[in-house]
Amino acid sequence: MRKPERFRRFLDYFTTHFPEPQTELRYGNPYELIVAVVLSAQCTDKRVNHVMPALLEQFPTPAQLALASADNIFPFIRSISYPNNKAKHLAGLGRMLVDDFGSEVPSTIEELQRLPGVGRKTANVIVSVIYNQPAMAVDTHVFRVSHRLGLVNKTATTPLAVEKELVRYIPLVLIPKAHHWLILHGRYICVARTPKCEICPLKGFCKYYITNFGQPAAEDLNAATTPSI
């Protein structure tokens, strides 16, 4: 199967069954989302959602976060992975939002990457979710699933290489949604250690499945139902 056909089937499936995917991080405004995304690096959304209410009660705005030190922030995020580094990032992020951006979360990838703790992946999440720009954030789920499905080449060995291949074949209007589709599929079905291939609705065109289990049954070639994710 040629790559354009794989993308067509991938997009057809999710636009039909999950037309409006959403991030699982809870947020009420751009400031809350950027804080949550910084905390979510190598940490589950569930854990981030657990600590965010108390953190935001103490630091509800960029101005209040800007007045905090890393030591002030640490107790609220101690259960998050790498809390020391993330506390330092958030303290610096608050100050820069106030001093350089008038307490507003910037809308460009270049400006976002100036903020402490914000790399390209985080910047892509912000511009995609908040500003609906055609940016593809590549985390471990997106990287894994796109390779297993055969959407990207084996030579795409970096997140940026995967990002470039994905955006080449996905229509601009669907890129923000495709980011969520790949993440959610990787989080609940195409998991890292033991992918749930037996219930995967995409195995009819999945390279990983064909390599490991052979050609799928006829009924899987045009699967029309999905397990809940």
Rank of each mutant, 00 (worst) to 15 (best):
D139A: 06
R120Q: 05
A36V: 03
E163Q: 04
T140M: 06
L202H: 09
H89E: 01
Y131C: 03
K203F: 11
A192V: 11
K46I: 09
C190Q: 10
A66D: 07
P19L: 03
H179R: 08
P75V: 00
K46G: 06
N29V: 04
P60I: 07
S40P: 09
D12R: 14
F14H: 08
Y82C: 01
V51D: 01
H179Y: 03
A63K: 14
K3P: 00
H180Y: 14
Y31I: 02
L93E: 02
V129C: 09
E57C: 12
V35S: 00
A63G: 14
G28A: 13
L11Q: 11
K121N: 02
G117T: 08
R148G: 06
L149H: 08
N29H: 07
K154G: 13
D45W: 07
S103L: 12
K3V: 14
Q58H: 15
D99A: 13
R168C: 06
K203Q: 11
H185K: 13
R144G: 11
A135W: 03
F213H: 15
L184W: 07
Q215S: 11
Y131H: 11
K207L: 12
L56E: 09
L221V: 12
L182S: 01
S40A: 09
G204Q: 06
H50C: 01
C200A: 12
A123E: 08
R187G: 11
R6T: 07
Y13V: 03
L115D: 12
P75A: 01
R8L: 05
A66I: 11
Q22L: 14
E57M: 12
I130Y: 01
G204Y: 04
F205A: 02
G117M: 06
C206F: 09
R120K: 10
S146V: 07
T194I: 14
